[in-house]
């Protein structure tokens, strides 16, 4: 068992008694009270647990807890800005991109990162960026609408 410490959504957190085989996802969900990142396959095939590790979107289920030591983690819980939903979160609501919502946190983290580096992604760019996030409810159409909407709103806001 070990102690693991890293920064989550801007706050330094530590967890004790971590089993060496535990994933970052387990530590976030079960030890740090941050269950927003979802557990749907635990083998990197669904994207539901997507978080940003030092800014890069990754599957939290494939990061050993010890690998997160002293790093920066951002989860869906850290997307909102000053208590207000981020533009990408609002767009998902407005476009009807949320049904059961289980894929939503991972998609939001992935979409947010895409829009951060590309303010005018093509449809193919959006699809490529989100191709690691399975959704079983929407057929993806409303998710595409949401990302297009969020991109347009970001451009308008600039």
């Amino acid at each position: 068992m070990m102690r693991v410490g890293f920064t989550v959504n801007g706050v330094r957190r530590t967890a004790d008694g971590v089993w060496e085989g535990e994933s970052l996802l387990y530590v976030l969900r079960e030890r740090m009270g941050l269950p927003g990142s979802k557990n749907a396959c635990e083998q990197g095939e669904c994207g539901s647990c997507t978080v940003r590790l030092d800014g890069v979107p990754v599957c939290a289920c494939l990061i050993a807890a010890g690998q997160a030591q002293d790093r920066e983690v951002r989860t869906v819980e850290g997307l909102a800005e000053g208590g207000e939903p981020a533009s990408v979160q609002r767009a998902f609501l407005d476009a009807g991109a949320v049904q059961c919502g289980f894929c939503t946190p991972g998609l939001l983290v992935a979409a947010d990162e895409l829009l951060e580096r590309d303010t005018a992604p093509s449809d193919a760019d959006i699809r490529e960026a989100l191709s690691g996030n399975l959704c079983r409810c929407t057929g993806y159409e409303k998710i595409m609408d949401a990302v297009r909407l969020a991109a347009a709103r970001r451009r308008e806001a600039v």
Binding site: E20, E42, G44, C61, L62, A64, Q67
Partner: peptide, 26 residues
């Protein structure tokens, strides 16, 4: 050896592998 974890962590999560030591190269 554990690098990206995209193979090793799958085996650990799924209970297929329980190495005595994980060697983080990160």
């Amino acid at each position: 050896p554990l690098a990206g974890g995209t193979d090793v962590m799958v085996e650990i999560n799924l209970g297929h592998r329980r190495p005595g030591h994980l060697l983080d190269l990160g």
